[in-house]
Amino acid sequence: MPERKVIVKSEVGLHARPAATFVQTAAKAPIEVTLAKADGEPVNAKSILSVLALDVRQGEVIVIRAEGEGSDQLLDDLAAIAAAP
């Protein structure tokens, strides 16, 4: 399955505004998207509560996975959001 590994750069981690932007972008896609910490269980990337509960901090590595039409573009977009400072 196509995936991207990204280091989260935002000072607030994947919380607050970065988390909202990330989830909103994922939610627009018609395909399934998951998010996991480097060695953790994947969660639904369209669920803000699940993403917040992962508690991703600045400097942590996350893995974003999606399969299906447009998955490459979507993964690039999500990776860019997660890697934005």
């Binding site: 989830v23 639904n44 369209k46 803000i48 509560l49």
Partner: peptide, 9 residues
Amino acid sequence: ALMARDPAL
């Protein structure tokens, strides 16, 4: 609003 629309919820 995103929380209220959460698919996992």
